[in-house]
Design a protein around this nucleic acid. Structure first.
Lengths: 256, 256
DNA sequence: AACGATTTGTTCGTATGTATC
DNA sequence: TGATACATACGAACAAATCGT
C-alpha cells in the first residue's frame, strides 16, 4: 500500500514477465488496455512502463506497442588461455572464442594512426607523455553483428627498428606478436589486465547499436603486454557491450 | 530543433555538467527555476531531469533539490598476482588491494551453509547436481563502506577428509588455501575466471546502498580454482558494484 | 499511393502528497 | 510550523510512427 500506483503496476507486470506469463518478445497490453486493467490514468501506466524500461525488462516501439525484451544468447569470450602456452594473439584466440559456439567471426582491416600518447597510454607503455605511438584499431563482428572494438598501441621504436608492417593497414592473421617475435626476436612475457565498466560514448553506442535508454554500459579490458625483459610491448583496449558477453579467463599454474 | 524540448533542456544541463560549470555535488536549479529559465512546464523540465537521472549524471533528494552526482574515486582491485606466485588467497590479497590506497579493509566473519549444489555450482565443481557443498559467504568493507560480497563453494569431501575448520564460522586470516595445503596437502593449480555484468538483486542493492534508478549493475568474478591434479577445488564468486572498482589482473609468463 | 486506425511520444495544466530544513 | 522542493496522479491535446485496407 505504501508503494505508489505506478510501482504496483510495474511490479505486477514484472511478476508476469519473470513468472513466464509474458515471454521474451511478447507484446504487453497497450497503454489503453493497461489503463482499463489497473484503472489508472494513461500517465500513470506510462510511468509504470518507464520503470520497466529503466530496468531493461521491456522496450517500446512507437506505433507498434511495448514488448518484453529478447534475451540475448551470451557469447563466451575466452580472454586468456593457460599461462605457459602464450597469451593468445589477435585473430588466433578470437577464432577460438567463436569456435565454441560455431559462429562466424570477421575482423575489419585495422585503421592505423600515428599520434601522441595521452597520459594513460604513455603511462602504460612506459613512455613520455606526447611520445609517438602507433594505434591499430579494428572492429570485430560475429555473425555480422558488431561484437567488440579493439585498439592496440605500440611504441614507435618497433617501427624504427624495422617493423614496418606495423604501420600497414592490413590484418595480420598470424598475429602481430608472431611477426615481432619471428622477424625481430621480440618475445612476450607477462601481461596485466585492467577491467573497467563505463557508459559508452556516442561512437560506441552507434557501433554496437545500443538502445538509448540510459541503462547501457560497455566493458573494457586493457591488456598491457610486456616483453620478456619487462619493457611494455603494447597496450590493447578491447571494448564489449555488456549485454552480449561473458568472459572466461584461465591462467595460473598448470599441472600439464 | 528536431529534438523534443525535454531533450534540449537535458542536453543543455549535460553540457554545463560536463563542461565544468556545474561541478560534482553542486545543486542544479530547482524545477521552478528551470521552468522559468527554459520557459517550459514543470512536467517538461522534470522529464529533462529524469533523462539525466537515467544516465547517472544527477540525483534528486526530496525536499532538498537536484544535485550533480559525486564522482567516486575508483578503487584499484588487484585480482591476481603474477602466475607462479600462487593465486592470491582471501584476506591476503584483499589486504594488498587496499594497501595501495592506504584504506582500511574489514571482513565479516563468514556465514557458513551446507546445501545442495545447483546446476551451475555443481557444474563448476564437477559434482552431481544436488551434491552437498559448503558455502562461506563474507561481506567486505573498505573504510566502513560496503565493497564486495564473496561466496566460496567447496565440495563436502574436504570436510569428510577431516578439514573441519571449513565449516567453522570464523575468518581464516591466513587463508583457507593455506589450511588445506599445510594440513591436508591439497595444493592449488590452475584457475579459471568468468566475468559477468548483471543487474543486482534486492539484497545486493541494499548492501551496496545502490540507488534504485535502474542504471546500476554489479560485476561478478567467478573463480574456479583447481587442485594440481586438475580436480576443482572451489568456486569463488565475488560481487562488486561497478561504480566503485577497477580491476587489475596480472599473470602470464614472467621473466623473474 | 492515400487514408484511417492504433499505439507510443511530447507537452501542457492542475492538484495533492511527502520529505527536508 | 511554515516554506521549499521533489513525487505522484489525473486529465487533455496533439504529434509521430506503424500497419492494414
Amino acid at each position: 500500500m505504501a508503494d505508489p500506483r505506478y510501482r504496483q503496476i510495474a511490479e505486477a507486470l514484472r511478476r508476469q514477465i519473470e513468472g513466464g506469463e509474458l515471454r521474451h518478445g511478447d507484446q504487453i497490453p497497450t497503454e489503453l488496455e493497461l489503463r482499463e486493467i489497473y484503472d489508472a490514468s494513461r500517465n500513470t501506466v506510462r510511468d509504470a512502463v518507464k520503470w520497466l524500461i529503466a530496468r531493461g525488462l521491456v522496450e517500446t516501439r512507437p506505433g507498434q506497442g511495448t514488448f518484453v525484451v529478447e534475451k540475448i544468447d551470451p557469447f563466451l569470450t575466452v580472454v586468456e588461455s593457460v599461462a605457459g602456452f602464450g597469451a593468445g594473439e589477435g585473430t588466433a584466440s578470437y577464432a577460438s572464442e567463436v569456435a565454441a559456439h560455431r559462429r562466424k567471426a570477421t575482423v575489419s582491416d585495422p585503421r592505423i594512426e600515428v599520434h601522441q600518447a595521452d597520459t594513460y597510454v604513455a603511462g602504460e607503455l612506459g613512455l613520455e607523455e606526447g611520445a609517438l605511438v602507433i594505434s591499430r584499431a579494428q572492429r570485430r563482428y560475429i555473425d555480422g553483428t558488431p561484437w567488440s572494438l579493439q585498439t592496440s598501441y605500440y611504441s614507435m621504436r618497433y617501427v624504427e627498428a624495422g617493423a614496418r608492417r606495423l604501420i600497414e593497414a592490413v590484418d595480420m592473421p598470424s598475429g602481430v606478436l608472431n611477426y615481432l617475435a619471428e622477424d625481430f626476436g621480440i618475445e612476450q612475457g607477462t601481461w596485466r589486465d585492467r577491467i573497467v565498466v563505463r557508459p559508452p560514448d556516442g561512437g560506441e553506442a552507434f557501433f554496437f547499436k545500443l538502445p538509448d535508454n540510459g541503462r547501457i554500459a560497455v566493458l573494457e579490458i586493457h591488456r598491457t603486454l610486456f616483453e620478456k625483459s619487462g619493457i611494455p610491448l603494447r597496450l590493447t583496449i578491447t571494448t564489449y557491450p555488456v549485454d552480449r558477453n561473458e568472459f572466461v579467463m584461465t591462467g595460473g599454474e598448470t599441472s600439464l
